[in-house]
Simulated assay, not measured.
Amino acid sequence: MQVIWSFCLSVILILGWSNNAIAGELSARLANFPQWEKLTSVQPAKGDLVYPEWMAGTWQVTSTLVDLAAPLAPDIVTPGFAGNRRQLNQPVSFTVRFVKEKLPNVSLKIIPKIDTNSPFLVADRAFNSLNLARAYLGNEAVLSVKIDPDSPNRQITFLRGERQLVSIVTARATETTSEGKYITTEVFQQLFKGGSVPYLNSVESTTAYHKLSTLSPAIEADQVTAVYLSPQDPDYFTAGSRPVALYRYRLEFFPPN
Rank of each mutant, 00 (worst) to 15 (best):
residue 107 S to A: 07
residue 207 T to D: 01
residue 58 T to K: 13
residue 239 A to N: 04
residue 218 A to S: 13
residue 231 P to F: 04
residue 15 L to E: 03
residue 135 A to C: 02
residue 168 I to T: 08
residue 4 I to F: 15
residue 178 S to P: 07
residue 254 F to W: 05
residue 4 I to H: 15
residue 162 E to M: 06
residue 136 Y to R: 14
residue 249 Y to P: 13
residue 151 S to N: 14
residue 76 I to G: 03
residue 117 N to A: 13
residue 131 N to W: 00
residue 59 W to N: 09
residue 9 L to A: 14
residue 150 D to H: 14
residue 257 N to P: 15
residue 207 T to P: 03
residue 219 I to G: 04
residue 34 P to V: 12
residue 182 Y to F: 15
residue 189 Q to G: 14
residue 78 T to H: 11
residue 66 V to R: 13
residue 112 P to E: 04
residue 216 S to N: 14
residue 79 P to Y: 06
residue 113 K to M: 11
residue 191 L to P: 03
residue 209 Y to L: 11
residue 17 W to A: 14
residue 186 E to N: 13
residue 121 L to N: 02
residue 9 L to V: 13
residue 114 I to G: 04
residue 75 D to E: 08
residue 38 K to Y: 02
residue 244 V to M: 01
residue 251 L to K: 03
residue 44 P to H: 01
residue 147 I to G: 00
residue 113 K to V: 04
residue 220 E to M: 06
residue 165 L to G: 02
residue 95 T to W: 00
residue 34 P to C: 07
residue 41 S to A: 10
residue 110 I to H: 15
residue 147 I to Y: 00
residue 122 V to R: 09
residue 134 R to M: 01
residue 229 L to C: 12
residue 172 R to P: 06
residue 210 H to M: 10
residue 120 F to Q: 08
residue 36 W to E: 09
residue 19 N to Y: 14
residue 149 P to Q: 07
residue 77 V to Q: 06
residue 89 N to I: 07
residue 213 S to G: 12
residue 121 L to C: 04
residue 242 R to C: 05
residue 134 R to S: 00
residue 114 I to R: 12
